[in-house]
Each structure stands twice: as C-alpha cells, then as structure tokens.
C-alpha cells in the first residue's frame, strides 16, 4: 500500500514538534537543579570575580525564559552551544561520539537477529516441547538481565580471568598509529574495511564482540520471542495449512511463508526497542570504556553540563522518533492491514 504524502508530511511536522517539546522539557528540567554550573566554567578553585563573570557569560543571571530564548535562537542557527565542561562545541562532541554508539548498537542488533531468529523459529516448530521451554527461558533471560552487571561479570571472566577477548576500548592505539589509520565516517569497522586496513578491522572486531554481545541480550530476547509468536501464528493459518495440503514441500512452506512473514515484525519490534537499547548502550559504554555518546552523556549529566545534556537528549530523541516513523511507514507498506 503506498503511503500518502500528507501522512509523511504530518509525521515530519510531528517530528519537529516532538524535538522542540523534548528540548523545552529537558531545558526546564535541567534548569530546575539548584546547582552552580558556573563552577564548571570557571575552573576548580575560582575567585569570586571569576564566578561572577562565568555567570554572566553563561546567562545564568537572567531569568529562565530569557535563557531559553537565547538557547533556542542559537539552536535554530545550528549552534548547540559549547559544553561547559570540555569547552568544545556540543555538536562536534556528539558527532565524534555518536558513530561509536551506533556502531555498537548495529552490531548488537545483527547479533540479536543472527541468534534470535533461528532460535525463535526453532521454538515455533517445536511448540510445547523442552526446546520451546528452553528457548523461552533464554529469551526471557535476555530481557531480565541487568546489562551493566552482565557487562561487569563477562568482562571479569572472559577478559580478566581467561584473557579471551579485550575487556575495554574500541581499538588498540598502536594498530591505528602503525597503520596510519584515519577514520572517515567514525564507524571504525566500516572505515577500515573500505580502506582495506584489515589490521584495524580485526582489532576493532575483537574489541566489539564483548560489548555488543552484552548489549544484544535485550533485542535478542525480543527477536526470538517475536519470531516464535509470528511463526506459530503463521503456521496455524489457513493458507499455510492449505499450502501443505496442496503438497508444497515443507521446507518451502517454512521459508516462503513462515519465516518471511516473521521477519518484518521482528525488525519492526527491534526498531521500537532502539530507545531502550541505546540506554543499555550507555551503561555498556561505561563498563567497556567505549568512547560513545553514553560515556559523554553520563559525564555531562553528573556534572550538570546543560548544553551537552540537552544535546545528547535531543539526538537520542531524534533518532528514536525517526526510527519509529520509518518503522511505521515500512510496516504499513509491507502489511496492508496496518492503516495509517
């Protein structure tokens, strides 16, 4: 079913509205805190005049709606402000950090699908047997495990005790320096692959396995359960049964009807779980010293670096809403029953 132009325009307008809504809510929330961010700006042992000056520079001496006005006018011009902690433009900081987080999330999603879909399909085919039960418990485990704890424990066991995998960082510096690797997009796996730099590629891959695996727990459980649910529904449907009755090979039936039908909702549900996964990524990043948005946001949040906090929240909300929108549109194109 083609998606109407009006619908997309409406969604885009809503998107703009949501971004500004989120911006205003976050702005107000951050300014309620009775902290003194001028301390950040002025340095660790400031004098009274320095604090006074910092307050003026940061407009902290103005009422909140004036501050909001300043921020909004700058924001529209594409100036997201300067981080009060790092004194770096926030947008630039985010641009450096975001690819690392996205790379982690994407690899985690790929892992989740590779492990989750076959397991879910298996469970659907073996309904109500011990296989089904085991898959069910394992997939529910994925949604029940505290990611930061799993990260700590796996890091301790696999990296510290057994030395199987690197337990922190994104890539080893010496490989980068020896090979003169220069990132282009910031997605190290992608960049090194297109440059044919396999030393960096394998090194980065080795580093991403553990954090991505930890992060894949939640989407893995989701994809396994969705696959199981959709496939068992499809397997029960009239046309599947008729197809079998008509003598179509069983393999064809499973792939052509069941698995294919299952994939769209699985990917849709993964898309919807993006928001949850990215927060999971924040915690995983803290444990694995992954130089992504999470590490940046956590530091910004704990030190009341407002421009950085607002920047991070907006970026995450933006990605989240865009993905939700795409999922909705794609979903409606695949599944004619969904009306928009």
């Amino acid at each position: 079913m083609p998606v109407s132009k009006e619908y997309i325009i409406k969604r885009l307008l809503l998107l703009v509205l949501v971004v500004f809504g989120v911006l205003i809510i976050t702005f107000v929330i951050t300014r309620i805190i009775p902290a003194h961010p001028e301390l950040l700006w002025a340095g660790s042992h400031p004098t009274e005049e320095q604090l006074e000056k910092a307050r003026r520079q940061l407009h902290l001496d103005k009422p909140i709606y004036v501050q909001l006005y300043y921020y909004l006018t700058d924001f529209i011009k594409g100036n997201w402000g300067v981080s009060w902690r790092t004194k770096h433009p926030v947008l630039k900081d985010i641009a450096t950090a975001l690819p690392a987080t996205l790379e982690l999330v994407i690899v985690a999603f790929i892992m989740a699908i590779i492990i989750g879909v076959p397991l879910g399909a298996l469970a659907a085919l073996k309904r109500e047997t011990w296989v089904d039960h085991v898959v069910r418990v394992v997939s529910v485990l994925g949604a029940s495990v505290p990611v930061f704890w799993l990260a700590l424990i796996l890091q301790l066991v696999l990296s510290s005790w057994l030395g199987l995998l690197p337990g922190a960082k994104r890539v080893d510096e010496y490989v980068v320096i020896e090979t003169g690797f220069k990132p282009i997009t910031g997605f190290i796996l992608f960049d090194s692959l297109i440059q044919g730099n396999f030393a960096v590629f394998t090194n980065a891959l080795k580093h991403i396995i553990l954090p991505a695996f930890v992060l894949s727990m939640y989407p893995f459980g989701l994809s396994a359960r969705m696959t199981r649910a959709v496939m068992s529904e499809v397997l029960n449907e009239q046309h599947t049964r008729s197809a079998l009755a008509w003598g179509l090979p069983k393999r064809v039936v499973i792939y052509k009807y069941a698995l294919k039908n299952a994939l769209a909702p699985v990917i849709a549900s993964l898309g919807l779980s993006f928001g949850y996964t990215i927060i999971g990524a924040f915690m995983v990043e803290l444990v694995f010293v992954w130089p992504g948005l999470g590490l940046y946001a956590a530091m910004a949040l704990l030190s009341y670096d407002y421009p950085a906090v607002i920047g991070c929240v907006i970026v995450v909300a933006l990605i989240y809403t865009v993905i939700n929108m795409i999922v909705d549109i794609v979903h409606s194109m695949i599944d004619p029953r969904v009306k928009l």
């Binding site: 809504g21 951050t30 928001g275 949850y276 927060i279 995450v316 989240y320």
Partner: peptide
C-alpha cells in the same frame, strides 16, 4: 504522546538527576 516520544529510560535519568 510527548512523554512517549522520550526514549524510555532517558526521561527517568534526567528526572532522577534533577
């Protein structure tokens, strides 16, 4: 809907920090 537009835990984190 405005509240739902926030990624789930993010709003909670911001509020808890406040």
């Amino acid at each position: 809907d405005m509240f739902l537009a926030f990624p789930p835990l993010l709003l909670a984190i911001a509020l808890a920090a406040t």
